[in-house]
Design a protein around this nucleic acid. Structure first.
Lengths: 123, 123
DNA sequence: CCCAGACATAGACGTTTGTCAATGTCCAGG
DNA sequence: CCTGGACATTGACAAACGTCTATGTCTGGG
C-alpha cells in the first residue's frame, strides 16, 4: 500500500482516484455464484442442448448419452443449473423435463456489459 | 438411457429431437475457461474497481487495500484476468497499471445471449 | 403386489482453486 | 554500489469442485 493517505500533494500517487463506486462485496459474491454455474464445460453444453430442443425442453436420458458422463453426474449438473435459476425441472410421470428460464442468461449477460448490479433480475 | 434407438414408432420417446446443433465440446471448454476468469468475487471486484477509475486504469497498490487481501493474492487474480484477455498490464517505472480491454466483457456477454460461439472475438 | 426403469441422493476420491508466507526481480534515489 | 519499495513468483495448504459407484425413491405395467 502506498502512503497516499492524508499526505500533502507533493506525495506521488500512482493513479487517479476512482470516479464511480465499485461493486460491493455482497454483489460480487452473488454474481460470482451465478457465473460459477455456467463456468463449466458440461453445464454450458447442457444449456446448449436444452436450447437446441424444439420446445427448449429435454429430459435426462437424452442429455446423458451425448455427454459421455454417467447419469448421476448429469443429474448433479442439472441441479446446479436449476439452483442457479437457469433451468426449470418439471417431472411428468417417470421423466424429468428441463427447460430454459426465459431471460435468465440474458439478465446475466446484461450485468456484465453494464457493470451494474441489476438486482431486480436476480433469482 | 432410454431405448429410443432404432425402434418402431410405437416406442415412447421422452422428448422431441433437437432442432439445432448444440455447442461443441471444444467450444464449451474455451467458453468455460473464459467464464471461470470472471466467476470469482475478488476478480469481479477487481474488474469493477479498474472500471471505476478515471482512465479505467489502476495499479496494484490501490487495489490491494480495499479488498483486504495480500499483495500476492491480488497479483495472482490480476494475472488470471490478464491471461483471460480482460485486462492489460502496463508497467511504467515501478508501478504496474492495469486497464480494461475494450469490448472484452461485452463479447463474453454476447456469447451468452446469442448462444453462438463468436470465435472471432476470442482472445 | 411386485418388478423394471428413470431419476435423485449419499459417500468417496482425485483434481483444481483461492489464499498466504517467503522469496525473487526490477527500478529509482542517495 | 547499495538500499528500499513495488510487484511477480514459488511452495504449501485447506476448501471447493467434478466425477464415479452404490443406493434410495417414485412411477407405471404386469
Amino acid at each position: 500500500m502506498t502512503t497516499r493517505t492524508e499526505l500533502p500533494s507533493t506525495e506521488v500517487a500512482c493513479c487517479a482516484p476512482p470516479t464511480r463506486e465499485p461493486m460491493t462485496a455482497e454483489t460480487a459474491a452473488v454474481l460470482a455464484q451465478r457465473l460459477k454455474a455456467i463456468a463449466d464445460p458440461t453445464r454450458l453444453r447442457l444449456l446448449s442442448m436444452v436450447a437446441a430442443h424444439e420446445n427448449a425442453e429435454a429430459c435426462v436420458c437424452d442429455l446423458t448419452e451425448p455427454l459421455g458422463l454417467t447419469q448421476p453426474t448429469v443429474s448433479h449438473h442439472l441441479r446446479v443449473l436449476v439452483d442457479a435459476g437457469l433451468l426449470t425441472r418439471d417431472k411428468r410421470g417417470v421423466w424429468a423435463y428441463f427447460a430454459l428460464v426465459p431471460g435468465a442468461l440474458d439478465s446475466l449477460a446484461a450485468v456484465l456489459t453494464s457493470q451494474q448490479p441489476a438486482e431486480g433480475a436476480a433469482v
